[in-house]
Design a protein around this nucleic acid. Sequence first.
DNA 1: TCTGGGGTCCTAGGACCC
DNA 2: TCTGGGGTCCTAGGACCC
Length: 428
Amino acid sequence: MSLEIKKVFALVDCNNFYASCERLFRPELNGKPIVVLSNNDGCIVARSNEAKALGIPMGEPLFKVKNLIAKHGIHVFSSNYALYGDLSHRVMEVLRQMECDVEVYSIDEAFLSLPVNKTWDRLKYVAVLRERVRKCVGIPVSIGIATTKTLAKAANRVAKKDAAGVFELNGTEQIDKTLQSMDVGDIWGIGRRSVEKLNRYGVYTALDLKRSDETLVRKQLAVVGARTLMELNGIPCISLEQAPPSPKSIVTSRSFGHPVTSFEDLREAVIAYVSRAAEKLRGQGVEADTVNVFVTTGPFDKQAQYSNNQTISLPRPTASTPVMIDAAIRGLRLIYRSGYRYRKAGILITGITAHGNRQLDLFSIGKPMKEDTPLMAALDKINAKWGRGAIQYGISEVSDKPRSMQQTQKSAAYTTSWHELPIAKAAN
DNA sequence: TCTGGGGTCCTAGGACCC
DNA sequence: TCTGGGGTCCTAGGACCC
């Protein structure tokens, strides 16, 4: 009996996404090497093909490749997440208009579920889709098709190298040929540690892994690895998730542009992070009852190292900014030690539940809940209209404060700010 | 001088309970 | 001195992803 397959997966992946976003408004940079930096202009997080060809590694600290950048005149951009988020949204909208099931997997990737139908040309369909994204949004994408998500990822790698930008992995022979040409570490879900372990057992290529003994894989890589093994063999273990569940945790943290030593500066940073996280909670319509605050010195600093964190449980779930700020500051007081040069601080919010699903506590029964929901709603509305940080809690963020971010190469908010809209001129 | 940020899942081990 | 067996919950840490 053969397993009848009714659906296949397609993975749509934006090519060099952040770099493509920057180029969209600077078309003269097409064909030129460009890179995009992380927050604080710290690391390289995206590269155009030309920059990759010049040997700029992913995740490399900027200062290590300064010479290479100067030598080849590589264009450098600070990250502009508002722009990338907006363009991502536009790409996903085009996909949704194509009447197939869509799972938005990350800012630049989406899985689709396509029906298997002999009278229907899947490759042609995704080629049309690809062209539509290019025409409507201007972002180039590659699309890989296969019977499992893991194989669709592999198919996408091939699509990326092909001018057509679309590729389907179909049939044992073709699958094996493709997997043989891939390092095992190129497989989705196989990271550096797993590669080390697998190499010890003579597993080097993706095909080696596909043909590995399940007992061995399960022992070395546990259930996650066993799942990957099955997916490589065409047995789907990871399904399409159309409705993303509400987040289980929300982290807001930043490295400081310069070391921070005083409690006041740390407090100011933590207030800003909590405010942002609480806003996210409200945006998702959820509440949380646990706030963890953490601080750390820089791992690359020569000075004494210190890092610590403190969890504060709230009496009941909330999304109120002042309640959460109060908790975070209490936590910060417990872990702050003077005499250290802090490089990073952040907060982690957990215990997230849907608004209205809250467990009543013994002391609030029968008493009206004192809430500042209307205040928070007003706050969010004003900040949405006038820009993030238009109204804040006791913060004075000015550019010469130590924690302000370094962003020296930032492009304009072309699509999300009225003030920075690009001007189009029509010649007649 | 300069080394990102935000997530998920899994596992092991400790505390605690009956 | 001898100290079971089964279970839950929580946390920290590892590994991975984009």
